[in-house]
Amino acid sequence: MKNDLRSRREAEDLSQEELAVAVDVTRQTINAIERERYDPSLELAFDLAAHFECSIEDIFEPEEE
């Protein structure tokens, strides 16, 4: 799934580790999401959206088939 997590994180001057701590996952998971190699669960997507104070659709965009 496409996402703009990296740009949002960098806009807040957060490291991957800091964002990982904020949403209670590992840094590797944040890295995998940013590289679009892992699609987060709905729960984690909600946590990320809550952290950036936006909706899930603002961060994630489904890949067109």
């Binding site: 990982a20 701590v21 209670d24 996952v25 590992t26 590797q28 998971t29 995998a32 892992y38 987060p40 669960s41 729960e43 984690l44």
Partner: peptide
């Protein structure tokens, strides 16, 4: 410290 999460479970 979170050493494992949903991605590792997956």
């Amino acid at each position: 410290v979170t050493i494992s999460d949903e991605r590792f479970a997956d």
